[in-house]
Every structure is written in C-alpha cells, then in structure tokens.
Amino acid sequence: MKSRFAGLGRLYRGETTFDFIGRRMIGFAVSLVIVVAGAGSLLIQGLELGIDFRGGVAWEVPSNSSAGELTDEDARAVLDANNIESTSAKIQFLTGTELQIMRVQVGDQTEQVRLAVQKSYADLAKVPVEEVSVASVSSSWGRSITEKALRALVVFFIVVSLYISWRLEWKMALTAIIAMAHDVVISVGVYSLLGFEVTPATVIAFLTILGFSLYDTVVVFDRVLENSKKFAASRQSFANIANISTNEVLARSLNTTLASALPVVSLLVVGSFILGAKSLED
C-alpha cells in the first residue's frame, strides 16, 4: 500500500521515469491502426449526419397523454402508414419533470405529408393537432454551419501555428498541428466506425478535443524548450530531455483529462441511468 502511495506521490511531483520515447513505436502502431480503420470507414460508409446537416423534418408528440405512453413501435407504425421509410427514422423520448415527449426525425417530406403525419400522431396521442409540433430543417443550414466551422478551423490553425512558431519553434508548431489533426481524425473515425449521429453538438465536441489537444501539446513543448536550456551544459540527448519533460507534466495532463471527463461521466450516469433522461442516453 505504501509503495502505491509513493508511486502516486512521485507521479504528482513529476518524478516518474516512463520511457515514452523508447516505447514510441508501440504508440505509433496503435495510433496507425486506429487512424487507418477510421479513415477506411470514412471513405466506405462516411458519417451518419443528423437532421441539422442533411435536412429533414421532426415531430414532437406528448408521449404520456390520455392515450397512455407511446412506444417506438407506435411511432414507426404511423410513418409506415404514411408511406415513410421507418427503419431509418430516429426516435427519441425526451423526459421532463411532468411530461415526456416523443421526438421523431426523418428525411425531408412535402408539406402535405408533414401535416398528415402531424394529424396521425395527434390522433394516436389523443391530443389536439396544435400540441404536436413540426420542425423542418433545410440541409443548406447545416451546410452553411459546416462551411463556417471549417473556415474558423483553418483560421485557428494558422493563428496557432504563428503563435507557437513565435513563442517556441516552427518545428513545434508543425508538430502541434499534426497532433491536433491526428486527434480529430481518430475521433471522427470512431464516430464513423460506430455509426454515431453527427449533430451540431458533435462539432462542438470535436472543437473541444482540439482545445485539449493543443493545451497538452503546448505544455509539453514549453517544458521541453525549458529543459533544453536547463540541460544544455550536461550534453543530454534530446530523447532524454523529451522523456524528462513528458514525465514532469504527466500529472498535469492526467488532471486535465480527469477534470473534463468526470462531469461528463457524472451527467451520463446520474442523468441517464439513474434519472432516466433518454436524450442523454441517446
């Protein structure tokens, strides 16, 4: 037990001696496998874009009305009855304090079909037609948001490259950009492999990953530059300096990861599995 606490103490004091550089080929191999798998999935099956990006229509129906609680099968039956492909429909149950809402999303439909489905859901839930909301999203909106996000991302890369080149070295700036691109490619590849739906919230998550990736990269590079000057007279190899620097900031990187992961896990566990918020579970 004492040895474990001693190990944690060494970790948080930056006194660990992990050979990151010596074992870099293991990391390269694992990373390459994930990147290739993700890139292959992106090329073959692409991403599952949400309604905000591909356009479509969504109905929101009170699920716990006088007709009783509606089910997934009820929602799909209404779609089938109106000649809409139900297998590709996305159905969510949004739970509030007093009311549960069933949200049904499909591809774009004509105004006549939208109104017919709205009336069918109202009849099914035994509520007035006005209580069944219909929302239509054009694919041009999602395309516009995507283009703006990409432009902002390019500007972000340029500004970050210039700053790191000025503050550290141009080689570090290039490496930082590669590291951020690597992290985003892996994240997007996982979404493609697992078939997760890409929504505006997903784009925000990808940008958040960029932020954390850049933060960790700059922290390590700054320590490497500092130690390069510190050990200049001792003729230490650059590999040793990189190892020392990475071990010194390891605890800081772990703390950053935990600080961001704990709230997300808490929301998922407490909100979804304990309180039953279906939107979080989806």
Rank of each mutant, 00 (worst) to 15 (best):
S3T: 00
A6K: 14
R13G: 08
F18I: 09
F28Q: 09
A29W: 07
V30P: 02
L43R: 10
F53T: 14
W59C: 08
L70G: 10
D74V: 05
A77E: 12
L79I: 01
L79T: 02
I84Y: 13
I84W: 10
T87G: 04
I91V: 01
I91S: 02
I101F: 15
G107T: 01
T110Y: 14
T110M: 07
L115P: 00
K119R: 09
A122V: 05
E130D: 14
W141F: 03
W141D: 00
A152Y: 13
V155S: 06
F156H: 10
V159Q: 01
V160E: 03
Y163W: 15
W166N: 03
M172Q: 15
A176I: 01
I177C: 01
I177H: 00
A181Q: 09
G189P: 03
V190S: 06
S192K: 06
F196L: 10
T202W: 09
F206D: 05
F212P: 02
L214H: 14
V218N: 00
R223T: 04
S234Q: 12
S237L: 15
A242C: 08
E248G: 08
N255K: 15
T257M: 06
T257W: 03
L258C: 03
A261I: 15
L262E: 05
S266H: 06
V269H: 11
G271W: 04
L275E: 08
A277N: 12
